[in-house]
């Protein structure tokens, strides 16, 4: 076991535990996190692109990852609040159940994939397939999202503060996408719909919780399913 140190308590907070990736394996970091009592505060240092940090945790923890991290950060979590002070690789917060995962930089592909609940905030850009197969979580991206974002998203909300790439919302189900900037192209069965007051309220709430100050909730574009591909018709034209 490597370095697990406690630093001086900050005002109003319990002690901050420091986990150093330079001396701990990923398994050791995650085991140490899992054994912590609820409401602990942790700082993970020297991540240097490490994958699978802070995964599968079900306590209310306050975790800061101090630097760039790799794939699957915060995946499968059900409770903690995780902040990455850097950029991350593929599949941020995959299958998130609850809690918050926040990235100060950019996130790579498949950000928030299959998230069931909780809030995922990316202050920078995300690349392809952000929010793919989203199942109820909220994904707020301050910058741009890459192509095929929202692909087959079943439930939840995706907010894009910048521009969306090609094939946005392809094969959408019940998830709704809001875009503040431009949309390169819509995917199959995705359509732009009129914004209702309910949408504006939903976006305003998400903008506030994400901490964004560059999005006007009244000026976003709503993208939802046209529902032509909603059901798979096995007997359609007797082709199958």
């Amino acid at each position: 076991m490597g370095t697990v140190t406690e630093t001086a308590p900050e005002a109003g907070l319990e002690n901050t535990l420091e986990l150093d990736c330079a001396t701990l394996s990923t398994r050791e970091v995650n085991t140490a996190l899992r054994e912590l009592p609820a409401r602990s505060r942790v700082r993970i240092v020297n991540p240097r692109g490490r994958h699978n940090l802070a995964v599968a945790l079900d306590q209310e923890l306050d975790i800061e990852i101090a630097g760039h991290a790799g794939y699957f950060i915060g995946g499968l979590c059900d409770g903690p609040s995780i902040t990455v002070d850097g950029f991350v690789g593929w599949s941020l917060a995959e299958n998130l159940m609850s809690g918050t995962v926040r990235v100060r930089g950019n996130a790579s592909e498949c950000c928030g994939a299959t998230g069931h609940g909780g809030l995922i905030v990316v202050h920078g850009d995300t690349s392809s397939r952000a929010g793919i197969s989203l199942k109820g979580a909220e994904l707020a991206v301050g910058g741009d999202v890459g192509h095929m974002s929202g692909f087959m998203a079943q439930a939840g909300t995706i907010l894009v503060g910048g521009n969306a790439g090609d094939a946005l919302g392809d094969s959408l189900y019940e998830a709704v996408i809001y875009v503040a900037g431009s949309i390169a192209s819509l995917g199959s069965d995705a359509q732009v719909e009129d914004l209702t007051q309910e949408d504006v309220d939903r976006v305003r709430s998400l903008v506030e919780r994400a901490g964004f100050d560059h999005i006007s909730p009244e000026d976003v574009t709503r993208v939802a399913s046209a529902k032509h591909l909603y059901n798979f018709d096995a007997l359609k034209e007797q082709k199958y």
């Binding site: 692109g49 760039h68 690789g89 690349s127």
Partner: peptide, 26 residues
């Protein structure tokens, strides 16, 4: 055209580095 496989590029005044994963250039 689907960007199915990863690639990360890092550029400085001295070099261009490319790797499948960022961790490999740290």
């Amino acid at each position: 055209s689907f960007a199915c496989k990863p690639l990360v590029v890092a550029e400085t005044d001295e070099y261009v580095a490319v790797t499948s994963e960022y961790i490999a250039m740290t």
